[in-house]
Amino acid sequence: MLEVKNLSHAYAEAATKVLENIDLKVDSGELVSIVGPSGCGKSTLLRTIAGLIRPTSGQIRLGGTLVQDVPDNLAVVFQDYSRSLLPWMSVRDNVAFPLRGRGMDRKARRAAAEEALDAVGLSYAARKYPWQLSGGMQQRVAIARAIAYRPALLLMDEPFGSVDAQTREELEDLVLSVRANQEMTILLVTHDIDESVYVGDRVVVLGRHPGRVIGDVAVALPGNHDQITTRELPEFVHLRAEIGRLVRQAAEANPAA
């Protein structure tokens, strides 16, 4: 579904590469976590896939076609919800915002927005403005906007980095339920190792300076996910340790300049 081949990127001003020879394959319907120490280029990788940055070299293919510009069938959930939501629009209009490009008429857009808000449990806030809501609720709106768009690929850039721990767990479960109900491939960047294991089907670990793939770990956790019982499973504890070790190695091998 998504294929990243030999991708390298260097920002014009910087001498060193941010990303080097990244190879990554994501199958349709997979939820892949990308984790790594700060400065490993996780966000840069996501931005190249989103077509916001043109990589220095290498290829990205989405559903077989080469990504040159921003791909059609893609949505992004940014970390900074307060800035990605438009303050002059109501919550419902924010969710409906990208649907105009889908060729839907006003009525269809409104219905789709309401359905998506329902899916994230925010139907009652449709007429409010984003800045009237708490941080966690705002990020729910951003997620609703992404799912209303029905993208083939959903990119999430540290989506829960700015909310409190309790809200974070709720939002992680929300992502899992969204995924269970919709045909969607999800790439989630996080710096939280526990989160990467809890949410992902697979965890890709990036090292830094330059950023490259140093681990690709399949996650197979039995049963339905539950914030308490899943996290106490021996499999979960083991995976967390394995990935934690990889991240620490990466951080120690190349301490941040």
């Binding site: 077509g51 916001l52 949505a75 940014f78 990605s84 438009l86 990208p98 490009g101 768009y149």
Partner: peptide, 26 residues
């Protein structure tokens, strides 16, 4: 004008003219 809002609009496939009209102007 917030660069995150611009990025968001671009990711949802808005053309530069639409970004100007629907993000920058408001």
């Amino acid at each position: 004008v917030d660069p995150v809002a611009r990025d968001m609009a671009r990711c949802f496939g808005l053309r530069p003219s639409a970004v100007l009209l629907r993000i920058a102007l408001p």
